[in-house]
């Protein structure tokens, strides 16, 4: 009991034998903070500063302007399609990989991670090679008057590609660590497949699922390179928010570019905040689970 009553600081403090002298400590902290300030915090602050530099009127005008609104709509639409698709994929892949033993499993995990190591530009290009006018399906698509490249479906495809791994790679280690005993117990007690998944598995992975979804969504809304290749940059039609930022910037409309960019920066901050909250829930969940297993 005594130990738990002590304030956190005295429990956390490292003994002197393994502690650096104060001047070393503060020098290292100072260096780290200087680096982070220079490369992270200043750019972040600058986005909001530049966005609001010319006043709130200019700021809001840039955001409610029709092309901006259409870009917001498109970005939301793309995320609304890409994220659920990868959510279903992530659950299916994690179920197969974490709950069963089969050959070629590690190869499959590597394949799932593949999109992470492909340059965004190449991710867009490969869809042009298939669906573009000179692509494999190009002539057939043109005949049937279907447009994929320079259209919303191409943007969705490229976004799905770059966000494939996010949810699966969160769920796989989580579900592997949880093992299969609870599911086996459920089946032995008479539960069918859906009951086992929805009542036992899903509640156990909900935080990991949410975590992966948040990251997946952030990337889906923020993707630039891949989308840039397949979009065609048609204002008011195939422009997502990041592409809209680029157009405004290239037109030297800096205030508007930063105004729209600030929306995306806000999205990033919300993502980080949610991520931090969910992370602490996951840690807590894990501690409970460890307690659950041990003793």
């Amino acid at each position: 009991m005594n130990a738990t009553n002590l304030p956190a600081t005295s429990r956390m403090r490292r003994p002197r034998a393994t502690q650096e002298p104060a001047w070393v400590r503060w020098t290292l902290i100072g260096l780290a903070l200087a680096f982070l300030t220079l490369f992270l915090f200043v750019p972040l602050i600058l986005v909001f500063y530049e966005a609001l530099k010319k006043g709130a009127d200019v700021y809001f005008a840039a955001i409610i302007e029709p092309d901006a609104l259409s870009a917001i709509r498109l970005t939301l639409t793309v995320a609304a399609i890409a994220v659920p698709l990868n959510l279903i994929f992530g659950i299916a892949a994690a179920w197969a990989i974490a709950k069963f033993e089969f050959r070629g499993k590690s190869l499959l995990i590597t394949l799932i991670d593949l999109p992470f190591s492909v340059s965004p530009v190449v991710s867009g290009l490969i869809y042009v090679l298939i669906f573009g006018l000179q692509g494999w399906l190009g002539p057939w698509l043109a005949e049937h008057d279907i447009q994929v490249i320079f259209a919303v479906s191409g943007i969705v495809l490229a976004t799905v590609f770059v966000t494939v791994p996010f949810i699966a790679r969160e769920l796989i280690p989580l579900m592997q660590a949880q093992g299969t005993e609870e599911e086996e117990a459920a089946v032995a007690l008479g539960a069918n497949g859906w009951q086992t998944f929805s009542r036992v598995t899903l509640p156990n992975i909900k935080w990991g699922l949410l975590y992966g979804t948040i990251l997946c969504n952030a990337r889906a809304m923020g993707e630039f390179g891949a989308v840039s290749v397949v979009s065609g940059h048609i204002r008011g039609s195939t422009n997502t928010l990041p592409l809209h930022v680029e157009i405004l910037y290239n037109e030297y409309n800096f205030a508007a570019a930063f105004a729209v960019a600030s929306l995306l920066a806000l999205l990033a901050l919300v993502t980080l905040a949610l991520k931090t909250v969910v992370e602490s829930r996951i840690t807590q969940h894990k501690e409970n689970a460890n307690e659950h297993r041990g003793a």
């Binding site: 005993e181 609870e182 086996e184 117990a185 459920a186 032995a188 007690l189 008479g190 539960a191 069918n192 009951q195 009542r199 036992v200 509640p203 156990n204 409970n288 689970a289 659950h292 297993r293």
Partner: peptide, 25 residues
């Protein structure tokens, strides 16, 4: 009835719901 080595209790359910599970499904 199977009792697992590490009990395999459903961690997201109360004790009551754990015991009731087999009847509820």
């Amino acid at each position: 009835g199977f009792v697992f080595q590490h009990y395999a209790l459903f961690r997201n359910m109360t004790i009551f719901e754990n015991v009731a599970f087999g009847l509820r499904v």
